[in-house]
Design a protein around this nucleic acid. Structure first.
Lengths: 205, 205
DNA sequence: GGATTTTCTGGATGGGTGTCCAGAAACGGG
DNA sequence: CCCGTTTCTGGACACCCATCCAGAAAATCC
């Protein structure tokens, strides 16, 4: 096979992938607005000015589309705390940075987080995109654990909690702050910031 | 008005209320099985061998039915820990009783709890039964706070956490244990039991 | 510039939904 | 036993859904 056709193939694949990505983004924002159950493929396609039929050209079915969409967003989202882990030089600096980041993503991306919890809940019933949800959950657990380990390192203390427990507590604090925020409690992000910072300190021994 | 017609009126009202309650129960178990989005009024009615039309005789609409159903179940559920609070004579007895109760309801009523989280998530999008969800959330927050106050009393220590924070952490631990359990992790209830007991101790100062 | 492949359209299909309602059936007081 | 009320039925309605697909349009290749 000649080099030129190889390039052509690659360009073709890239274009296909780009379209997929664009459609996944559209799906993401559409479902973030209305919720999984109330958002149809027509709503999604309308976001990019296309007919609903295209979606089946790029994705096997609705579950496939949703899986790609949520993965695309959330797998990057799990890396949100990498900078603060990499740059913090003291325990309290890390705690503050972590807490501030949580508070700001709660405020800025509330709809996306709501979507995440919606999909995770739906995955308790149907196995359509369950694998993707499980994979993201693992990513987030890793993320929390990484932060916590670095925090313990900087503090020179031991972690007094299990990996999954740590995620469960952080997740619970975040979810309940999100619910409060969506119910109109504008102070919720600020309170979450305090909770998150104190939580880190409380789980060391 | 004569006594006899008063009695008759009351019997009529009671019968109506009993039917409502029965239908709400049917709705509960149907939706617990399939999830809110995938359960229709026909499915619910079929559980009690009735036609779907009858639901609109007893309830205004689907949201009204769901609100009654989840309230009927969950408002009683929030009293589940009353006995242990009333009878425990030491802090560790209370903590153990609380933790054991959580673990056992996780194991026995997993579907119902899944339903609760489903409805709470849907209430983030639609206001249909949001008021009921908020009321139940308040009940559960009260419950956690009552347990924690009694625990602090018995331990002779202070609570180092806010009311809503306490609920958020317990809820997070429970929800994540539920997810693990539904994904096939049979040890999850046992682990939750440990987490819950340690959590109580950790939030005192 | 013609042929071929990729991309997209929008209608058809079969199914589901909540709601409403006319009328049948069961009930119960007199 | 009759008659009014309560309870229930199941069809009609308008709407929404995911999926499939024949064929139009656009892009690409030679």
């Amino acid at each position: 096979m000649s080099t030129v056709t190889e390039r052509a193939q690659k360009a073709k694949v890239d274009k296909f992938a780009a379209r997929r990505s664009e459609l996944a983004d559209a799906a993401l924002s559409a479902i973030a607005d209305g919720g999984f159950a109330r958002t149809g493929l027509r709503d999604i396609a309308a976001r990019v000015g296309l007919s609903h039929g295209v979606l089946h050209y790029y994705f096997r079915d609705k579950d496939d589309l949703i899986a790609h969409a949520v993965w695309q967003y959330k797998s990057e989202c799990a890396r949100r705390y990498d900078p603060v882990v990499a740059t913090a030089t003291t325990a309290s600096e890390l705690a503050d940075g972590f807490a501030a980041e949580m508070a700001s993503t709660l405020q800025d991306d509330a709809d996306m987080h709501r979507l995440w919890y919606d999909l995770r809940t739906q995955a308790m019933y149907e196995e359509g995109f369950r694998d993707t949800i499980v994979a993201i959950d693992a990513l987030l657990t890793d993320m929390v654990w990484t932060v916590l380990r670095r925090y313990a390192d900087l503090a020179g203390r031991e972690i007094a909690i299990e990996r999954d427990e740590a995620y469960a507590l952080v997740d619970g604090a975040f979810l309940n702050a999100l619910i409060a925020f969506l119910r109109g409690d504008l102070d919720s992000p600020a309170r979450l910031q305090g909770t998150a910072a104190r939580l880190l300190a409380a789980v060391l021994r």
